[in-house]
Design a protein around this nucleic acid. Structure first.
Lengths: 115, 115
DNA sequence: TTAGTATATAATAATTTGCTTATATACTTC
DNA sequence: GAAGTATATAAGCAAATTATTATATACTAA
């Protein structure tokens, strides 16, 4: 039986606040299974590019999300090495799968990242 | 193997936002093992009574917390019947036990509820 | 019934958040 | 190197959040 990772209460509150936004929570849920770039999120959420960039920045600042440049695109991924990943994971387990959003993108020919 | 309860993404974000506050998160962690009244929280957090009441109201409005009057006091407890309790529980598991806060209260003779 | 304790609520002020608009940077392709 | 695409960032603003102050309600005890 693996021990449950403990998270400092103050840090936990910070993470929950970060994820207490529908857009960011959905992003993290999607990133848990697929890497994505900004323009994919923009298409998925019907949001402006700066709005998405700003959400991503918060996720990056927390260390939950990492980035890699691939040519023109910057591919974002969940940082599974984060000390808080197990905590986040146990939230994500309760959320419904969001793969349909990526499938919609594919249908529209807007899927970029390949993972 | 019990299935993991699924929570609508929008509702999940609302709950995470609610718990994304150090005071409310600590309250919920404490209420998971002990009932408490407002004046106990006031003493524990060194916060004003209206500030605590307003935090509690939000928790009540979400359905996560219930109340019972006991004479002069209103005793708050975690609503384990809430549809979102399993979700909240899997967060709380990652938080360090806060019993020391109640023990401090007892030492100061400020513990009210008996559970 | 009056005083005291516990709690809620309303009004307001301070802070934070998340968006928009405008612009800058980085890469690709011609 | 010029044009196009992807992304970041800064400034400004509106909405949401949280605390404070002041007051009201509910119960207890004298």
């Amino acid at each position: 039986m693996a021990a449950i990772s403990k998270v400092d209460l103050e840090k936990a509150a910070t993470i929950l606040k970060l994820l207490g936004d529908k857009t960011r929570l959905t992003m993290i849920k999607i990133l848990d299974s697929h890497d994505c770039c900004v323009c994919e999120f923009v298409a998925m959420f019907n949001a402006s590019q700066p709005a998405i960039s700003q959400h991503i920045r918060k996720l990056k600042d927390s260390g939950l999300v990492g980035e890699t440049r691939r040519g023109q695109w910057i591919i974002y991924s969940l940082n599974k090495e984060s000390e808080y990943y197990p905590f986040v994971c146990s939230l994500l387990e309760h959320l419904p799968n969001q793969d349909f959003k990526l499938q919609q993108l594919e249908k529209q020919g807007l899927r970029i990242s390949c993972d």
